[in-house]
């Protein structure tokens, strides 16, 4: 065993990469749940985003177009959820599960001819001077643009929810949809927008895995990140910055345990492999001990009965 093989700079830099898909999916779902909708289809929307982004960027040669396609792909799949839950008033849990199963199968079908293909690289942002600072430079300022987009999105969602009227109305709809309706707000419309946003974010998260983190296409490659994102939203008490913290913690321990495995630490691999899940959940459970709770209308079906 040789712990000196682990390079702390590389470790921190790669934990940010490992955390980004999770962060993107969790931020999207956080907005959806704040609007009072429980979409369990995150995993399905991620994998569809992963293949849409992969296919488009291979065909066009542009990773940017790939990410845009991934966002659209995720949002289009979430439209199915909109149709089921907001118009047909179907049960949200069942619809979300159906969405995940459908997404997994559909992406496998779409991706048959892309197995083994290498996608175009996005490249890293290089800012003169700042990126060259020792340690801090490689850790913070030598990443791809989507990683920064994830952080910017977290900040934006936090600010919008806290300081803007749109955010207030969204929270009101999630808190008490009957009262919001009585005040004349369009509950269904607001929820549809939130669901589409969540779908687009999940799609981006999926494409981040297939285009940057791994970069290749294999069936079922999101490997449960969507489910972790769902758990993360709950344990982060529906707070954006806590979701970021949780995502980075999860990403960090994932990367660390991989490094430990490579370094040959005398802990069985299975324990190392489960550590990110356990530690992330433990930390967030302790953090969520305060009295902040779920949006009161979460998962309830709204039907204007006037």
């Amino acid at each position: 065993m040789d712990l000196s093989e682990i390079n702390p700079v590389l470790l921190v830099a790669s934990l940010m990469v490992a955390a980004t898909p999770l962060l993107l999916a969790a931020i999207g779902e956080l907005v959806v749940e704040k609007a009072g909708v429980l979409n369990l289809g995150v995993e399905g929307m991620m994998i569809v985003g992963a293949i849409s982004g992969f296919a488009i960027s291979v065909e066009t040669g542009s990773p940017w177009l790939g990410f845009i396609a991934a966002a659209i792909g995720g949002a289009v799949l979430s439209l199915l959820f909109v149709l089921l839950t907001q118009f047909a008033l179907a049960n949200q849990v069942a619809s979300g599960l159906a969405l995940t199963l459908f997404g997994l199968g559909f992406s496998a079908l779409m991706g048959q001819s892309y197995v083994g293909v290498k996608p175009p690289s996005m490249g890293e942002i290089h800012i003169p001077i700042i990126s060259d600072i020792p340690v801090i430079g490689p850790v913070l300022f030598q990443h791809d643009p989507i990683l920064y987009l994830g952080i910017a999105l977290t900040a934006a969602v936090w600010a919008v929810l806290k300081y803007t009227r749109v955010g207030l109305i969204l929270r009101a709809v999630g808190e008490n949809h009957d009262a919001a309706h009585a005040l004349g707000y369009k509950v269904i419309k607001i929820r549809i927008m939130a669901i589409l946003f969540g779908g687009a974010c999940a799609g981006l998260g999926g494409a981040y895995i297939s285009l940057i983190r791994v970069p290749q296409w294999t069936e079922g490659m999101t490997a449960g990140v969507g489910w972790i994102a769902l758990a993360l939203v709950v344990f982060a008490s529906w707070k954006p910055w806590r979701a970021l913290l949780g995502a980075y913690l999860f990403g960090g321990i994932t990367v660390l345990q991989l490094n430990l495995q490579a370094a040959g630490v005398a802990i069985p691999v299975e324990y190392l492999a489960m550590s990110p899940y356990i530690i992330t959940i433990l930390v967030l459970v302790i953090l969520s001990a305060d009295k902040s709770s779920a949006p009161a209308s979460l998962g309830r079906i709204f039907h204007a009965s006037h």
């Binding site: 207030l168 929270r171 009101a172 808190e175 008490n176 009262a179 005040l183 709770s293 949006p295």
Partner: peptide, 12 residues
């Protein structure tokens, strides 16, 4: 039946 939002504050 009050059309209020329990988790929000008075001003909101």
């Amino acid at each position: 039946h009050f059309s209020l939002f329990d988790a929000l504050n008075v001003a909101e």
